[in-house]
Each structure stands twice: as structure tokens, then as C-alpha cells.
Amino acid sequence: MILPRFDYKKAEDIASAIALYEGFKGQARYLAGGTDLIPLLKLRLATPAAIIDLKGIEQLKTITREGGRLIVGAGVTLFELKNHAVVKEYFPALYESLDATSCETLQMRGTIGGNLLQNTRCLLYNKSLDWRKARGFCYKMGGESCNVVPKAKACFSNYCSDNALSLLSLSAGVKIAGPKGERKIKLEKIFSGDGKNPFTLKPGEILTEIHIPLKRLRGAYEKLRVRNSIDYPLLGVAVSVNNKKGKVCVGGIGPTPLAYDLEDLEGASVKELAQKARQEAKSVSNTTLSPAYRKKMVDVLTQRAIKRALKEGK
């Protein structure tokens, strides 16, 4: 498929990227690895007047330890992060989710910032313009209602970042820079809950850093997919635990990941949490495998991930 026309600008630092954005009056998109954005352009799901490339900003490419946190630049590639000594040693859930993200070729190109901000997906959304025109536009494309759930004035598209789940289980925060200055928020605050517009970032804002508390935790990531590589998660469960309690995060179903606190590590609490997660998962037939199966697997994978997290590193 051929790309549409757009202006291309490469920014040297964050301030100039924001200035460029403002110059295009909101008609611009930021580009990192492009593995999510370029396909969206080809499908005409995004038609910006300009693309502002963030790849030249050195500040976004560093990983540092500071104030009891690991500070990861949004432009760090998934591959580099996966192979960072601290990640392997301190955050097993993150290591596993990075390793399960698509394939290594993509990990070398895709960045962690782009991974967190990837658009939500649906079998009836990620399609060519001709295909979508023939079918009629869905709610997320600006149509009347959803094409998967007839008449629904809502979007059930799936947020498919593997790494958001593990980062949430690690209580990560993010730093955002924008036309109105900088702000720091918890990672869960970037999600709007709305599949049509999944993020709370304001126009022109750049995700600059991801902050992960430097605590050595046990953890695991379980991913449901039909092939062992390349596939997006049909469901993902990340778990990070210390000696007393933990955090579980379920995603790949619906536009926002769901996080749960595991109050103690007893079998009964684990089962109860897994059942609750299953009940709250709203799967619809907008991807591979039946919605009923994906919902059922929430319970199974949650228990499996917790069990594995508790067993490993004991």
C-alpha cells in the first residue's frame, strides 16, 4: 500500500519537536519507530499534514538510575530495554512481556514510548480505506455505531501493548512534556477508557520518560496468541509480586488495561482475583479466537502467571 503525502520534519530536541507540532496547528503526528503509525497511514486511518520524527532526540534514548527509580527514555527500543541488566534482574514481568512483543525484528525498531501509545486495534478497524468504505465506517472511524456490536455507541477495540501491562504491575509512572510544560503522572492515568480516543495525552504532548521503582520483584507475563511470534496479544496478564502482595494487570481485551491488587499470596485470594478479572473482561468478537474463550482464559492465565511468579526466584 502506498503512503499518503505528508511533510516530514526531524526534531533535534523536545522543545523544537513541540514547536514544530504547534507550527502545524495540530495537524501533525509524532513518529518514533513507526511500526504502529506507518501502517495506520497506509490504511488512511491517520492522515496528518506532517510527521515529526523524534528519533533524533538523544535525550529520549537513555536509561538511567536515579532516586530509586529506573528512568527509561521513551525512545529506547524494546530490544535495548529487554537486554538491560536491571530489567532482567529486577523486573521479570517486564523482561517477559518485552520478549513476547511481536518478534525481535520489530523489537529493534519499535520504542517503548510508541509501544505504550500504540492505537487500539479491531478486526474491522485495521483495514484499508476501500475495505472500510465498503463495510461502512464504525464508531471509532467517526461512524454512527460499532460494527462489531451492532448499534453500540461505543468502541470495544483492544489495547494491545504487552509492555503496558507489565509496567502497570510495576507501578510505573510517566513524564510528559507539552506546549503547557511538563507533568508527571501514574501510567494508568494515560488511559482514557474510551476506545475511540484511548489516551489522555493532550495535542502536542510528548511522552518523554517512563519511571519504574527500583525494587527487585518476582513476576511473570502470560500472553494468549495463536502463533508463537509476531502476533498481538489476544489477552495478556502481567504479575509482579514482593514477599507479601502483588499487582496483576490484564489487557488485550478492551481499550484499557485493568489492574488489580493481590492483597496476599494465598491460593484463595489468587482464585478470587482471577475470577473477578474474568468477570470484568469484556471481550467481543473483534479479533482471532472467540470472545467466550478469551474471557475464560483470563481466569486461567491470571492463575498461571501468579503461580509462575511465586515459583520463580524463590
Binding site: N228, I230, T288
Partner: peptide
């Protein structure tokens, strides 16, 4: 056709063989 691309038309990959 619901599967006009090779991402959703699940042909096995080398690692699935």
C-alpha cells in the same frame, strides 16, 4: 473478505512448525 492481510490470516510461522 475478513482476512485480506497476513497478520490476521494466521499462516503458521517457522517457530510454530
Amino acid at each position: 473478505m475478513l482476512n485480506p492481510d497476513l497478520l490476521e490470516y494466521k499462516v503458521p510461522l517457522a517457530c510454530d512448525m
